[in-house]
Computed example of a mutant assay.
Amino acid sequence: MTTIRAAALLLGLVAVGACGGTDDPELPDAPTSDEALVIGEILHARLAGIDDTEGLWIQNPTSFALWRDSIAVADGGAARIHLLSPDLSGGRSFGATGEGPGELLRPARLQAVDDTLVVYDRAGRVTWFTASGTAVHQQSLMIGSMNPGFVAGPNREVWYPVREPEWYARVVRDGVATPAIPRDSTLVHSGPLGVANALVPHASGPIAVDMENARVIFSNRGEPATVSPPPEVYARLRARADELTSLPERWANPFVQVGRASDGVVVWFPFQSGEVGAIVTVDGGWRPIRTGTTEVPAYAEAILVVGDRLYLGSSDGVRIYRLEASPVTP
């Protein structure tokens, strides 16, 4: 397993759009019912680069987005954005290394907003790209967090995470930053680096994920609605996080990665067996994800669920697994 410390630097802050701010292609049907989800065998894998002359190897997939019938991949090991076909069989890439207009330096997070792909990179820039790879807008947003992330709305407003006792995020509109998404100030920060949180897009509005305290918060439904793991799962998560935190040079959160799902958010756990994740839906549902494959999925650095497909990016490359419904067993 990739060390927890290394993975923590890549904890997912997947972009969030304002309500109605994204234009996703039609999604395949996801498994329905209250049954658990089980990861089946690998459907496809992409361990190498893009099949065109300008493409680079996918060195380090740090974020996914579903955009214009493609799976967009931010390559944190190169100044590239890869646009893969849904089965990873082909695609193209764009991007150039640098700190000038339209250039990238270790792209970290992605968001599809209408006909543009918005990229946050480690130089502290948010850039809007067209399908041809042309930059049409850029603004600086140096985020003071080990979890670089952003939220781009349809009018180029941007939400970003903050390390504040009372807030999960702030939003910048016309150059003015204001607080957004209140947090529970009674919760104690357990990680040595302070607040670790994430934002995930949904048609109902931004979904906040409290990475330290294993909570998913639906912020745009009147009073914020909070969904937590079942007690037995939460106990295992806390025990696992404590175990990893006690190891030399390592620390961990109960959730180690988050990403977008077809009807909510997918969260990933630091477990190596049993329940390795869950899908949390806007109605408060919590569907566990278990592994039924002979190959245990690698430690996630990027994750996306599209219908019944789980896209997982790690140091091994990009893989697709099928999610199948299975009866819940004790």
Rank of each mutant, 00 (worst) to 15 (best):
I4K: 04
R5N: 09
A8L: 06
V16K: 01
V16F: 00
C19S: 13
E26S: 07
P28W: 01
D29A: 08
D29I: 01
A30W: 05
T32E: 08
T32S: 07
E35S: 05
A36P: 00
V38Y: 00
G40E: 02
G40Q: 03
H44R: 15
D52R: 14
W57T: 07
A65D: 04
L66D: 12
W67P: 03
W67C: 08
R68K: 06
I71W: 12
A72F: 10
D75C: 11
G77W: 06
I81M: 06
L84F: 13
S85E: 15
G95W: 07
G98D: 09
G98T: 10
E103N: 03
L104D: 13
A108E: 14
R109G: 07
L110I: 05
L110Q: 07
L110T: 01
T116L: 02
Y120N: 02
D121Q: 01
G124I: 06
W128P: 03
F129C: 03
A131Q: 12
S132G: 10
Q139R: 13
M142A: 14
M142P: 09
G144E: 12
G144W: 07
M146F: 14
P148E: 11
V151K: 02
G153M: 06
G153Q: 07
P154W: 05
N155M: 12
V162K: 04
E166P: 02
W167H: 14
Y168L: 11
R170E: 06
P182D: 04
S185M: 05
L187D: 03
A196N: 10
I207N: 01
A208D: 00
V216I: 13
S219D: 05
G222M: 10
P224D: 05
P229S: 06
L237C: 06
R238D: 15
D242Q: 11
D242W: 03
E243G: 07
L244H: 10
T245S: 14
E249L: 15
R250N: 09
R250F: 02
W251S: 13
W251K: 04
P254S: 13
P254Q: 12
F255G: 02
F255S: 00
V256I: 15
V258C: 04
G259L: 10
A261H: 09
A261K: 05
G264M: 01
G264P: 03
V267Q: 03
G274P: 15
T281P: 08
D283R: 01
R287N: 04
R287M: 06
R287S: 08
P288A: 03
I289F: 09
I289D: 05
R290I: 15
R290W: 11
T291L: 07
T294Q: 14
E295V: 15
P297M: 10
A302I: 09
A302R: 08
L304F: 10
L304G: 08
V305T: 13
V305Y: 08
Y311L: 13
G317T: 13
V318F: 11
I320P: 04
L323G: 12
P327C: 10
P327M: 10
P330T: 14
